[in-house]
């Protein structure tokens, strides 16, 4: 269970990205966060694994206070939180396999990993995960030779190597075409349903949220203005999240 209390983030330039946000996310939920650019969605996600340092507030994952964790404790907590990104953030010049193995960095002997040495057990596990996202045959290719959708699947594989209980997805399909978007979203749905991994996902397109989410959080100006089932979002609710002048556009 992920509990967030009074989370506020003010950037050094004075922008208040999150304003007193409190929300509880139960295990196994597929939460989609929607809202305009700059509404605080990315900051919210990054506060959960402290890629962004919160200004105030508390975040608890299964009762463990993330915000109070020391650097070493934080690394232990991050092991259980997988993350995928809009720009995939793979190491472009390394092989697909090495990229996936990077998900084990928190588990392995640091000195062995600095030498680039991996245990056969980890390599076998990486191949299994690659098999699962349908990229086992690409293991030895350089990551930047893959298409966008394939790279995002490598990103998912890397996160799965952490054996996470929580998966953060920051605009995972914003750089992909509609068909590929659905394929990536289906992998997230699969790990949510089959592995019981809680998913918290930022999305631009409400249509994708309606299709995949069990719960939608609407962000506006750093505050949660909607929290409920995707079907509850009608025209009025939609305008609360996106503003008076917004018009909903469908994605295929």
């Amino acid at each position: 269970m992920l509990e967030i209390y009074n989370l506020t983030k003010i950037y050094p330039n004075g922008i208040r990205a999150l304003n007193n946000v409190s929300v509880t996310i139960r295990d196994g939920e597929f939460v989609v966060i929607v809202g305009l650019s700059g509404a605080g969605k990315s900051t919210f996600l990054r506060c959960i694994n402290r890629l962004v340092e919160p200004t105030s507030g508390r975040i608890l994952l299964d009762g463990v206070d993330i915000t109070a964790a020391s650097p070493a404790e934080l690394r232990k907590i991050r092991l259980r939180i997988g993350m995928i990104f809009q720009q995939f953030n793979l190491i472009r010049r390394e092989t697909v396999l090495t990229n996936v193995l990077c998900g084990r960095l928190g588990y392995v002997n640091p000195w062995m990993s600095l030498l680039g040495l991996w245990s056969p057990e980890d390599i076998r596990r990486a191949m299994q995960v690659l098999e699962r996202v349908g990229l086992a045959d690409r293991a030895m290719q350089r990551a930047d030779t893959l298409s966008g959708g394939q790279q995002q699947r490598v990103g998912i594989a890397r996160a799965l190597m952490q054996e996470p209980t929580l998966m953060l997805a920051d605009e995972p399909v914003a750089s992909l075409d509609p068909a590929t978007s659905h394929s990536v979203m289906r992998y997230l749905e699969e790990i949510n349903r089959e592995d019981g991994i809680t998913v918290v996902c930022n999305l631009h397109f409400l249509s994708l949220a309606r299709r995949y989410a069990t719960r939608v959080l609407g962000f506006r100006a750093g505050e949660i203005v909607f929290d409920g089932h995707p079907d509850e979002i009608d025209r009025r609710r939609f305008q609360e999240i996106y503003g008076e002048d917004a018009v909903e556009v469908e994605i295929a």
Partner: peptide
């Protein structure tokens, strides 16, 4: 981006340099 991704896996700062920084600067 890759620095963020490797940090998020729970890697130590040295591992971040080795896996996210070095491959980018080596050439």
């Amino acid at each position: 981006g890759p620095v963020e991704a490797i940090v998020a896996t729970g890697a130590t700062p040295l591992q971040v340099v080795r896996y996210a920084v070095v491959p980018q600067i080596l050439p």
